[in-house]
Design a protein around this nucleic acid. Structure first.
Lengths: 265, 265
DNA sequence: CGAGGAATTGAGTAGGTTCAAGGCCGGTGG
DNA sequence: CCACCGGCCTTGAACCTACTCAATTCCTCG
């Protein structure tokens, strides 16, 4: 119960706990990491294309995104990061990144340097397992995005993104019912969904008329999740929430003792 | 030089060598793995949605793909696998997969069980590093796909996929100039690009008329890579080919040694 | 109170889909 | 060796989803 209170305060713990039960020591460690957050204004780039990535960031408040800029001026948002999300963990050994990381609204981030991550992953098998699952979840989300962009119409795409954002917040208990804070502009949504802001607007209007959602003052509420889910074509469990099967957990422990890697695939 | 000959014979070695120089022992090990391939007909599913994934597959000949089926009968191809590619390596600890793996034309695969993989990555730091880079490359390709589906028109999408397929084959020295064997049907291309086969056909016609490609008898040649690249909006190095920066390699070795396995050198 | 970004609305357009039909090519059986 | 068959490719025409351009209103914030 005491830990439930902490979840509310530490989104990283909440996020990782989805995947694997953490020990008290794990929680203490993660809490410690998140003690020194930095504030950023909205619409600011944290990392730019070509930057070397020597550390990882954790979103603690607000929202950020990973995006690419195209030669014709277009923008494609690849991922939205919400509190608890790790930014660029898997890529932090890369020479440089091929995309930008920017804030959406005012956002707080914690920076964690490379050695700290390696240290953590080496000595804390449960955290390593949770990070691994978190990376798998990110994969699953990328795949789902491809399906959405490739095969669903505009209504389906918008419904998909709204559902995903709400589900992710619910998973870390950062929602009230099916309502969340959503600092995204309609242009942000459009840039993620491969649509124009104008058309996104029209879809949102339609959803409102159909009593499916309300979205005002940076606040989104889903009134009919079942119908939205149908429109989006999503299966509700695609995020693979739930904890690590013990059979699999088993594989992390021996590996943990014999070999730590930033990446354990 | 002697190894060059081997590359021609073992696509897995060729693929992993892109990322990191392998030792002779590494090469011997990988060669050994690929000794027992299984043949499959075209259009056959190797793994279905919901299957447990207890092993990994390596494509040695032919072509396979990862795809999702939609409730409305649509299909979205997520990844094409060419010789040397590892199928589902990162997911083989998962309870089950959320997509299908199927062959395109007649295809040969090697199945490698979980324990063998774990054994291999535990005791062979260079192979581990190469697999890690290979996974990063896969990520990059998924991101590029999202950009393509979200923000490029049909011409751009087709050009993108043709370039990618040729570049990947070139990287493992499985091309002659800019010509490759391509067992894909136009429907396969369409299912990967979020287009209809009919429209893909029209784009291909146009490309032929413009002297950009030839595609006949399952054989693709790019005549003007520069222009195709412009049309696709790709940067040629997005696959992050080239070998691991030594600074990064550095992180793998200490980790490798800290494994303390019996077979340490 | 003013200003600038975001949301909204309308009208015209275009890129890609859909439907329908015909042609090619490789494989198979007589 | 030829005829047939089925999958794939190709072509045409109508249609529709989503885009473009342009203007107006609404919020938010200084």
């Amino acid at each position: 119960m005491a830990r439930d209170v902490k979840w509310a305060g530490n989104p990283l713990v909440a996020k990782l706990s989805q995947f694997t039960p953490l020990s008290d020591e794990d929680v203490r460690l993660l809490d410690g990491l998140c003690s020194s957050e930095k504030r950023f204004k909205g619409g600011v780039d944290i990392l730019a294309e070509g930057d070397a990535l020597r550390s990882t960031f954790i979103v603690t408040r607000g929202m950020a995104c990973r995006y690419r800029l195209l030669s014709d001026g277009g923008r494609q948002v690849l991922t939205f990061f919400t509190p608890g999300d790790l930014v660029g963990l898997h890529a932090f050994l890369l020479g440089s990144i091929d995309h930008f990381i920017g804030t959406i609204g005012p956002t707080c981030l914690v920076e964690i340097d490379r050695d700290t991550v390696i240290e953590m992953v080496t000595h804390h098998p449960r955290i390593r397992a949770a990070l691994w699952w978190s990376a798998r979840q990110e994969d699953a989300m990328l795949r789902e995005r491809i399906v959405t962009l490739g095969r669903r119409n505009a209504r389906g795409r918008v419904a998909y993104l709204l559902c995903e954002l709400v589900w992710r917040q619910r998973a870390i208990r950062a929602s009230e019912g099916h309502a969340i804070r959503l600092p995204l502009t309609q242009t942000d949504l459009a840039d993620a969904l491969g649509l124009t802001p104008i058309y996104v607007n029209r879809i949102l209007q339609a959803f409102r008329r159909e009593q499916l959602i309300t979205l005002r003052h940076r606040r989104l509420t889903l009134w009919d999740v079942a119908r939205l889910q149908t429109i989006s074509g999503l299966t509700p469990d695609y995020l693979q929430l739930g904890s690590t099967p013990s059979e699999v957990m088993h594989y992390f422990d021996p590996l943990g003792r014999s070999c730590g890697g930033p990446d354990q695939r």
